[in-house]
């Protein structure tokens, strides 16, 4: 049901809405790319105005948890 590793499981959710928590940040966006060491998230809620989709690279090692919110 679930992949054996965290990165492999994340890779099955590419294109999904995610909330990624690191020690000091919570990134809300669309999961774009997953490699064994890096996660690319297109942030949709940066709070800096319209049309400002920021691309963020997160180290897999820095991630505390990833939440996949259910659609409202």
């Amino acid at each position: 049901m679930f992949q054996e590793t965290f990165a492999a499981e994340l890779a099955t959710h590419v294109g999904s809405r995610v909330e990624v928590a690191t020690d000091n940040n919570l990134v809300d966006g669309i999961l774009s790319t997953v490699t064994p060491n890096l996660v690319l998230v297109i942030e949709v809620n940066s709070g800096y105005g319209y049309g400002e989709n920021t691309t963020l690279y997160l180290s897999v090692d820095a991630i505390n948890f990833v939440r996949f919110p259910v659609a409202a």
Partner: peptide, 24 residues
């Protein structure tokens, strides 16, 4: 709901799936 080699899977109160890295 699951414990894998380097992460666990939780279902939170509103039904969202959460993957938590075991290392952290």
């Amino acid at each position: 709901i699951a414990v894998k080699s380097d992460y666990i899977v939780l279902i939170d109160a509103d039904g969202s799936q959460v993957l938590v890295r075991m290392e952290n």
